[in-house]
Amino acid sequence: MLDEHAKVLTVLQYAGEIIGRKKLQKIVFILKKLGYPFREKYGFHFFGPYSEELTLQTEELDNLGFLKETKEKQGGYHQYRYELTPSGETFLQNFKFSFSGLDELVTHLNQQPSRFLELVSTALYFEQLDESEKREKIKTVKAKQNYTEDEIDQAFAFIRDLKKRLVSKTTYS
């Protein structure tokens, strides 16, 4: 159980900070789809793939003082900022993860806008469909986002690039 919490903290450690609950959800989902051993279950929700388990884990980690969740007012809504705390750093010393390439991948994903990660994660959620079916599914389930063909093309290219970057899976003791 604590292994899964430590994996989330490892993502935060590599990211430095993640701005937005949606972004954290999408980064972990994308990493899972790329073969990293995240065990959270995901379903499809308003903003694409969503894990209640990940939400609970972040709440628990915040309550334990291992991550800091800061709520910020942004115009008409609230945005959340996630950072690893010194206690979280100490906690992570109990785990010896070896995530090949994860640090660079997390940095790369964290640099992308949440809207784009929502599109990428939605495409990965429907990966069993062929490309034309996937395009139609995205246009149907994400109609409010009004993604353009160019944005969808960029998301597909981004996924291909991510898959090329993968070298190996995780080992830990």
Rank of each mutant, 00 (worst) to 15 (best):
K96R: 14
F97N: 11
S98A: 10
S98P: 02
S98V: 12
S98F: 13
S98N: 15
F99H: 14
S100R: 11
S100V: 13
S100D: 14
S100E: 15
S100G: 13
G101A: 15
L102G: 01
E104Y: 09
E104C: 10
V106I: 14
T107E: 13
T107V: 14
T107Y: 14
H108P: 02
H108C: 08
L109Y: 06
L109E: 11
L109C: 09
N110D: 09
N110K: 04
N110G: 04
Q111N: 15
Q111C: 01
Q112C: 06
P113V: 05
P113S: 14
S114N: 02
S114R: 02
S114Y: 02
S114V: 11
R115I: 00
F116V: 02
F116W: 02
L117D: 05
L117K: 03
L117Y: 07
E118A: 03
E118M: 06
L119Y: 06
L119E: 00
L119T: 01
V120R: 05
V120N: 02
A123V: 09
L124I: 03
L124K: 00
L124W: 01
L124D: 01
L124H: 00
L124Y: 03
Y125G: 00
Y125R: 02
F126I: 04
F126H: 11
E127Q: 13
Q128L: 07
L129P: 00
D130T: 02
E131Y: 08
S132P: 00
S132L: 10
S132F: 12
E133T: 02
E133D: 13
E133S: 13
E133A: 12
K134N: 09
K134H: 00
R135F: 10
E136V: 04
E136T: 12
E136W: 02
E136L: 07
E136P: 02
K137F: 11
K137E: 15
I138E: 00
K139Y: 10
K139S: 04
T140W: 00
T140E: 13
V141Q: 04
K142D: 05
K142S: 05
K142I: 01
A143D: 12
A143L: 08
K144W: 09
K144E: 09
Q145M: 13
Q145D: 11
N146W: 10
N146D: 09
N146R: 15
Y147S: 01
T148C: 10
T148F: 10
T148P: 07
E149G: 11
E149A: 10
D150Y: 06
E151K: 05
E151F: 09
E151D: 13
E151H: 07
I152E: 01
D153Q: 10
D153S: 12
D153H: 08
Q154V: 03
Q154L: 09
A155D: 06
F156N: 04
F156R: 06
A157W: 13
A157S: 12
F158D: 06
I159S: 08
I159G: 07
R160A: 12
D161V: 05
D161A: 15
L162Y: 04
L162M: 12
K163E: 15
R165Q: 14
R165E: 13
L166A: 01
L166M: 14
L166N: 07
L166D: 04
L166T: 06
V167L: 10
S168A: 15
S168P: 02
T170L: 08
T171Y: 11
T171P: 03
T171M: 12
